[in-house]
Design a protein around this nucleic acid. Structure first.
Lengths: 343, 343
DNA sequence: TGTTAGCACTCTGTACTTGTGAGTGCTAAT
DNA sequence: ATTAGCACTCACAAGTACAGAGTGCTAACA
């Protein structure tokens, strides 16, 4: 069994390594306050901790560094929730202080502020729009061959797309069509729009609109908000500040991953409620081997709508980041709930 | 005066340095094809070229590298316009092949493709919307206190913003208001909207709408598309691949500049027509000291609407990039002109 | 029996040395 | 004018030496 003293040492090592990014040896550890026993004792304990798999050496006579398992234990059992500085609270609150109504802008600003607060990279998966309900569809003709379709959701989200009209399409029919669509589709969650168009509305349209076939399909496609939610980033280049990423090749592939977006999206979209920590290889991605990702979710009422994550080195300030994310996600949820709950 | 042989040598040195990023000495240069004279001769010529300020040494007995002045001369006088590979042509054409109507998407895709083609970072300043003319304003109520204002331009560009309504605002008046606005403002260039609202429409509104004051101001703000055009990027991390940026600090500050956007925007917005090359310190920015920026403009008809740029090391493949940009900007202009000219 | 002092050993990082290769500038011969 | 030849310079890589921080083990100690 692991003793209390060993845990104390493990914690001290991890805390120190998170600060200094340097392997730490028994002698320097013995000088730390809170450590009352000698370096020799520490050596023995360290040896045990290494046997348990919590610590590693970079070479035979180096100090120890935490292993992934070590971090995992630390996160699961040793983490003292950190008090958030009032300054930080204030800064987070400031995101929500302005009377901004567009969810996207709030999310964008959040990403920026969280990365500034943590000095890591923040990634925010924007709110799912597919549960939003249709508020209105507008179709506005642009040229003879094109029109612009705009859909507005109950949360004030606007999507638009230019669609091409069938040749010799009667402009008057556009309005007719929009009316039919609005009659039938308002209040329907976006996710179901596409289906509903084909199943219920197409028939109706075919009775009223000439040449409706191509139009409906291009419209259905427009309305098919399988467009995945957007990713927002803050502090993309913060990784470069971390000493473990002073290797250009490492940083280059990591930044490419971030810039690609696709890969991260896959990771972000599995978003179980609450705060979750993935350490190193737990991320199942070679490029993230030396990184940890802490994710939190935010909701409108009970309905979870988005995910926010902080990406840093495995040597991340877990305690601080977790506290910040907890605080942030609560505040964000509260705000969104207030804004959109009663729609 | 500078002799033809000196120019030949200058060209050979620059061409070689662009390829290999290594200082080049007289002996290796003498082995190149096209060079018929001995290394000693070359040494003498190099010495002269250095005196003219076209070449530099990294240390007393190193080979020579081009100076900024050298690149400048090269770009101005020695550049052989490069034939664009048919593959590259095809790739650029493919941007415009899909029937995409949204200008933004075209621009986005352009940035991506140009960065892939050149292996440098591409920056595209999106089309100016302020010359676009208003096609339609829509105001749609969301809640008791908020409504969403949507404006559509003649080019199919859509902007929207949530506005807050004065307390106890009558929903019916929204429609009235929208009608008035559309009556008076359709066809007006966006840049003039704000003025026009205050000067012409406000009076009218005040006669028909109660409590119109705050509403008008928030609406005017919404319509004020002083929102600068967006910047689009491709290959942000391509810089990391260049050997001259293997220094983390350099690359870090450069990427920050790129991520900040603001700084680049200042540079991009002064966009004289045609293709322009800024080399090193000509960019007037310490962070871009080792970079060159090649800009090109694109137009709708005669009306120049946006700028596209390639950012690379001073040791950039000027010839290739210039040719690509020339080709691209012509094609882009042709497409846009076809799409939007006759609106 | 758990803790600690002491010691031999290991490994990294830095500094110093040395040799090599690619380069230069100058001079004298062609 | 051009070029061969030569002395000289500098960067870079390899080798050596050494200090510093660390380990593991053993034996003494409370």
């Amino acid at each position: 069994m692991i003793t209390d003293r060993q845990l104390l040492i493990l914690q001290a090592i991890i805390d120190d390594f998170i600060r200094n990014a340097q392997p730490i040896g028994s002698r320097s550890l013995s000088k730390k306050e809170g450590i009352t026993f000698s370096s020799a004792t520490i050596r023995n304990e360290m040896s045990d901790l290494e046997e348990f798999g919590f610590l590693e050496k970079t070479h035979t006579s180096s100090g120890r560094i935490p292993s992934e398992k070590g971090y995992r234990y630390y996160v699961d059992h040793l983490l003292a929730p950190e008090r958030i500085k009032t300054d930080d609270r204030r800064i987070i609150r400031s995101i929500f202080a302005d009377r901004i109504y567009e969810l996207e802008k709030i999310v964008q600003k959040s990403a920026k502020i969280l990365s500034e607060l943590t000095n890591y990279t923040s990634i925010v998966l924007g709110p799912k729009v597919k549960d939003n309900k249709l508020k209105k569809i507008q179709i506005i003709s642009l040229t003879k061959e094109t029109a612009i379709a705009i859909i507005i959701t109950d949360t004030g989200h606007v999507e638009n797309k230019v669609i091409s009209l069938p040749p010799s399409f009667d402009m008057n029919e556009i309005e007719k069509m929009a009316n039919i669509l609005n009659d039938r589709l308002v209040g329907v969650p976006l996710a179901e729009l596409r289906d509903k168009i084909y199943k219920e509305v197409a028939v109706l349209l075919s009775q009223h609109i000439q040449n409706y076939g191509t139009l409906v399909s291009s419209l259905a496609e427009t309305l098919d908000i399988s467009n995945p939610p957007k990713l927002f980033f803050g502090g993309k280049t913060n990784m470069l500040k971390q000493p473990e990423f002073h290797d250009i090749d490492k940083v280059s592939s990591l930044l490419s991953l971030i810039d690609q977006e696709q890969g991260l999206y896959e990771i972000m979209k599995q978003n179980p409620a609450g705060i979750h920590v993935k350490i190193g290889r737990e991320n199942n991605n070679v490029l993230l081997e030396d990184c940890s990702l802490i994710t939190a979710t935010y909701s409108v009422g009970e309905q979870q709508v988005g995910t926010i994550a902080i990406l840093g080195p495995t040597r991340m300030e877990y305690s601080r980041v977790i506290s910040l994310l907890e605080f942030f996600s609560k505040d964000m949820t509260a705000l969104l709930t207030k804004l959109y709950q009663n729609y």
